[in-house]
Design a protein around this nucleic acid. Structure first.
Length: 893
DNA sequence: GCGTTCACG
DNA sequence: ACGTACGTGAACGCT
């Protein structure tokens, strides 16, 4: 079989790759901030075109410099002038492109004084003479002049993987020219991108016509005087010199002297081990999983051990537990769970140890209760590195062990460093620091297929790898934290908060299940009645819960007007149905059905399903490393969205009760915390004055935007409007959003905003400033230096950019409010303990804290919680805290 | 697994 | 011209 030589035009393909994925530029950024769009596209090209071809020889040719330093620059000083500068987002990818090429087994080559074209031209002739079948791949059509029977030129069409194949026959068919005549065509037309002229007014069409008649420019100019008089003839004669120069510039050299002999460009095949490392740096997740799949199925050599560093682990048993006492004062500890819910899920095993002293572990977590281990875990002087300290605290509480000395939580720190793309997985987060550990999915599978391997050694090895990463990454992570000035945020806020949250979750909140059942029974009978009414009005049975079926009924069968559409069909959301309600009685029934069905399925059935039978309590999990702003979130179940706004829904709160007789539920909430944070951060004197004077802030805002006197009465509509504007400001105002919310025109909304900014000029200035800051440094910060990155603030896409701008305005406000309540929680927890109170903090709902306490402790609790909360952080405006207590959560209002 | 809807701050 | 208010979680229908 004929041997194959592959020649790739690196610059032109990389350039194509960059622009093929230009619209993805803002999305494709590695954890290190490197743009990867060209790398992704180039890698696709290598995978799809090069790897399957398996050439014998292969080289990727690169331009040595701008092209000025070649014979072309000497011949024509303006050569390639006027080219726009290479974008920095492209340039930064160059070194990685070359590495990627090398790891795919191809030789990179450049040579001073030559452009990539000339290297390819010369190699192609050398290869042809040596009997190779030569394939050229380029993004530049000029190279088709090189085509011969043995040399095929592939030019990318759109993207990088779609290709047009130029053989001499195809060129003849397409242009009616031989490959060499392509040069003559270029001589006549010139090249705008390389900035050299041909003959004035001659474009592709005229050039092809002339060449059809005269074959080449030598012959053309021999006969030019015979042509009949025309503007074209005049131009040809005037631009003769320019045409011959253009021919020289367009001619690709095929006889350069290359420093690299043909024998040394042997194709080496893919270096999987090192390619994996590169893909990890670039965050090429799909490619990584592809390689792993290939390795697993044995299709490629190189095993898991080549990727994962080898870590030894000793299995602990009853007779070697004393080894743990020798581990020293610094170690990693990790208990593995069979699922995300550390309150209920099984524990798979544990590992403990350090690189210096080795790792010890077992599948039997009850060993952790043995004195040898318990004493180490409960010794605060023995410093532990963990992943998710809150989970570890609770798992150990379940075993009756109190974790102390956990100073390094890799999950918490990773979250503080960068909230984006945090999947809460050790393996993923380790990659940010170029450390590798197999993803849990590789060991256990996922979803329904989750299964702990029968081979204990395999499980323990995985755990030991995790522990080892926790030790390796510590210094790097702490350094990064320091560089972000976030050490205080971590050690004084998030880490102590994790302990507070662990106590709250473990404590849980008591549920009156009977009460919940009664509410459910009542709801069900009412739901059935409404269902019957709906079916009667519809004239048929259908699934009211299906927006699709409901849409067909309302908008097709009943012919109601379509007010809003979703991606997939008609919208049947509340605001739409409310507009339709006057036109058909069924709509009001559907709204009522929706409300009751939601209450029943989410809040009655949903809550009953997660009550722990042993203590009749609900133990939520507060996710501390999820939100982009620093707020907590609550899952399994979500106790941060228990109904409140409607009388019906609010009844659910009657089922949340104290866990002891003669105890009460107590709630304390910050009043207007986000607007106070806004007044503080922006330094706006007018808004600060309103808070300092203890005014009703929305009424005061109404007076400002409606131009009323300071003692003038404010009617309800004005106050409502002002309140919406205040909300809008906090969300990152836009006239469109405000207009939509208030049901007014965009112009009116814009006038409100303009007046607002005139009345509160420093808020206006801050909004502009924060967007600028976000643009310049790529992130915004809260008062506690919590960070949110906003790469899309520089996007060319209006939507993405606008979203980032609103986020830049909202996140510091929402996030600072989150900082404040977190600080308050830590101080409240300390105060409860220091004062030997029986009261327990149970829940946090963004700006409020919920407690249970003995009735006679409530007055003291009120005083303590209120004073701690309103002095948690000192701002330029006062904080105000309101509190309530009662026999159930419903009554604590 | 994604889209829609609706519960909260 | 572009076309959205910020941050969440759960249930359900549908593919």
């Amino acid at each position: 079989m004929t041997k194959k030589l592959l020649l790739i035009d690196g610059n032109s393909l990389a350039f194509r790759a960059f622009y093929a994925m230009y619209n993805q530029l803002d999305r494709m950024i590695s954890h290190k901030g490197l743009h990867t769009n060209a790398l992704v596209a180039f890698n696709n090209f290598l995978d799809q075109i090069v790897d399957p071809m398996q050439p014998d020889l292969a080289v990727v040719a690169w331009d040595a410099a701008s092209g000025k330093e070649t014979f072309r620059g000497e011949l024509f000083p303006e050569y390639k002038d006027g080219r726009s500068k290479t974008p920095s987002e492209f340039k930064e990818q160059f070194p990685y492109l070359r590495e990627m090429v090398a790891l795919h087994g191809l030789r990179n080559y450049e040579q001073a004084g030559l452009e990539a074209d000339d290297i390819i031209g010369t190699f192609s002739r050398l290869g042809e003479q040596a009997g190779y079948s030569v394939t050229i791949v380029t993004g530049d059509q000029d190279l088709i002049q090189l085509a011969t029977d043995k040399i095929t030129v592939n030019v990318t069409k759109k993207g990088v993987t779609e290709i047009e194949r130029y053989t001499p026959e195809y060129i003849m068919e397409k242009f009616n020219l031989t490959p060499l005549q392509i040069i003559d065509k270029k001589a006549l037309t010139g090249d705008t991108s390389d900035n050299y002229p041909g003959v004035t007014k001659v474009g592709e069409k005229t050039a092809l016509k002339l060449l059809a008649e005269f074959h080449d420019i030598d012959n053309l100019y021999t006969h030019v005087d015979d042509m009949k008089q025309s503007k074209l003839k005049e131009n040809l004669i005037n631009d003769r010199e320019s045409a011959f120069r253009a021919r020289e510039l367009a001619t690709i050299m095929t006889d350069s002297i290359l420093a690299l002999p043909l024998e040394e460009i042997e194709y080496r095949g893919i270096d999987y081990d090192n390619l994996v490392t590169l893909y990890e740096v670039l965050d090429f997740k799909k490619q990584l999983s592809k390689i792993k799949a290939l390795q697993k199925s044995g299709q490629i050599s190189g095993s898991q051990t080549l990727i994962e560093k080898n870590v030894n682990v000793v299995t602990l048993q009853d007779d070697n537990l004393q080894a743990v006492a020798m581990l020293g004062d610094k170690l990693a500890l990790h208990i593995e769970m069979a699922g995300p819910n550390y309150h209920t899920d099984d524990m798979i095993g544990f590992v403990i140890g350090s690189p210096g002293t080795g790792y010890y572990g077992s599948r039997d977590v009850t060993l952790l209760q043995k004195p040898e281990l318990k004493s180490v875990i409960e010794n605060a002087a023995i410093v532990k590195n963990v992943f998710n300290v809150k989970a570890q605290l609770i798992l150990l509480k379940r075993l009756g062990v109190a974790l102390k000395g956990a100073k390094f939580d890799f999950l918490l720190i990773s979250y503080l460093l960068d909230t984006t793309d945090n999947d809460n997985e050790l393996s993923t987060l380790a990659q940010r620091f170029d450390l590798y550990v197999a993803p849990d999915e590789d060991i256990y599978g996922k979803g329904a297929k989750f299964e702990v391997p029968a081979d204990d050694a395999r499980v323990l090895a995985h755990l030991a790898h995790k522990a080892d990463v926790l030790m390796q990454v510590e210094q790097l992570a702490f350094d990064a934290l320091q560089a972000h000035e976030q050490t205080h945020l971590y050690t004084e806020i998030e880490l102590p908060l994790a302990h507070v949250l662990a106590d709250m979750e473990y404590q849980g909140i008591k549920i009156d299940q009977e009460r919940l059942h009664d509410i459910g029974d009542d709801l069900e009978s009412r739901i059935h009645a409404i269902e019957d009414a709906v079916y009667l009005e519809a004239g048929e049975k259908f699934n009211i819960n299906s927006p699709k079926q409901l849409g067909v009924l309302l908008f097709e069968k009943m012919g109601l007007p379509v007010i809003k559409r979703t991606k997939t069909g008609y919208s049947t959301a509340v605001d739409v149905l409310e507009k339709l309600a006057p036109q058909a009685p069924i709509v009001a029934h559907i709204l009522q059905y929706r409300q009751l069905a939601k209450l029943n399925s989410t809040y009655v059935a949903g809550l009953l399903a997660v009550v722990h039978e042993q203590d009749s309590k609900i133990h939520t999990r507060f996710l501390q490393t999820l939100t982009q702003t620093g707020r907590l979130s609550s899952v399994d179940p979500n106790l941060q969205n228990i109904p409140m706004r409607t009388a019906e829904g609010r009844q659910i709160r009657t089922a949340f009760v104290p866990s002891h007789p003669n105890w009460q539920i107590f709630g304390a909430d910050y009043s207007q915390i986000e607007l106070r944070v806004l007044a503080h951060m922006t330094g706006d004197k007018n808004m600060q004055k309103a808070f300092l004077n203890g005014e009703d802030i929305h009424a005061e805002t109404a007076r400002a935007v409606f131009g009323l006197a300071s003692d003038a009465p404010v009617d309800a509509l004005m106050r409502r409007t002002a309140k919406a504007v205040n909300f809008g400001i906090v969300y990152g105002i836009s006239d469109f959003g405000l207009a939509n919310n208030l049901g007014i025109s965009r112009d009116e909304a814009k006038r409100f905003i303009d007046t607002y900014f005139k009345e509160f000029p420093q808020i206006h200035a801050w909004m502009s400033q924060i967007k600028e800051t976000a643009h310049e440094q790529g992130f915004v910060e809260t008062i506690a230096k919590r960070r949110r990155y906003l790469p899309e603030i520089s996007s060319k896409n209006f939507n993405l950019r606008s979203f980032a701008e609103r986020t830049a305005m909202n996140s510091p406000i929402q996030g600072s409010a989150a900082d404040i309540i977190k600080i308050a929680m830590i101080k409240v927890a300390d105060a409860l303990r220091d004062n030997n109170m029986q009261a327990r903090m149970l829940l946090q709902v963004h700006d409020e804290l919920i407690f249970e306490a003995p009735v006679d402790e409530v007055p003291e609790l009120t005083e303590l919680v209120t004073s701690v909360m309103d002095s948690a952080v000192v701002l330029d405006v006062p904080m105000r805290v309101e509190s309530h207590s009662g026999n159930t959560w419903y009554d604590a209002k």
